[in-house]
Design a protein around this nucleic acid. Structure first.
Lengths: 124, 124
DNA sequence: TTAGGAACTGGAGTGCACTCCAGGTCAAGG
DNA sequence: CCTTGACCTGGAGTGCACTCCAGTTCCTAA
């Protein structure tokens, strides 16, 4: 298997059909093949690229920046240093995000322990 | 010091003045004192509660659920088991979120290493 | 060949969480 | 007093990322 229907692609990528169309419209997805009748045909390469988009999206990159990255990827090998810079910048933000999340999770745990003791004490 | 102006509260909590007003309007913030002239006066308790809200928001809890939690807190000690359940549920989602973030961060790092090697190889 | 589900398009609508605005009021320094 | 910057209200507007819709076309299995 190496080509997929829109529905199958949605299932595999985790993006809805509407989102796939939207991503194509705004340039995150380019050169998607079509049948003679005009229906989209996705390849393994497309799925790979969707995996990249999912990674960026899951780590909180704004769509606009993903579009920038997509364009750099289309621009050829000369843009690789720029792509690297963009990803490195993003990675820094993700690290900060992970640290914040970890800190706040610790607070949450603390609160849970507090309530668990109180309710445990009363009910037991 | 134990009371704060709206501006000082915004600074300390990290929420904008508009957000503080919005939170009060939708019930996340209740019983904020006022001067005779109608201006808000925040206390250390309020700041503490804002810290809780910040924790929940930073960990991705939707506003609607924060409002539920706020109401439970106002409902008295009987609601503690419910509060505990709500926080535990949320903590599970946060754990999942942290795991996803960690996995995707690993992919991102991989991509960065790939580009770093390529651009390093060409430029060095 | 025909039925019916999948997919197409352009564009409007949604949900969330704020954010901004107009037109006033309040309060502290000079 | 008077100015002036902080604050007030209700309500409209914004930005993001989809999501839904109407009306039409495609394509596969019976």
């Amino acid at each position: 298997m190496s080509v997929y229907t829109p529905a199958e692609t949605a299932r595999r990528s985790g993006f809805s059909l509407d989102t796939l169309r939207y991503y194509e419209k705004i340039g995150l997805l380019a050169d998607i093949e079509r049948t003679s009748g005009g229906q989209r045909v996705f390849t393994d390469d497309d799925l790979g690229w969707l995996g990249v988009l999912r990674c960026l999206r899951d780590t909180g990159m704004p769509i606009a920046q993903m579009a920038t990255y997509a364009e750099l990827c289309r621009a050829g090998a000369d843009s690789e240093p720029e792509r690297l810079a963009l990803l490195r910048q993003h990675a820094v933000r993700v690290e900060e995000q992970m640290q914040l999340l970890g800190r706040q999770y610790a607070h949450l745990e603390e609160k849970i322990r507090y309530y668990a003791e109180r309710t445990g004490a009363r009910s037991g």
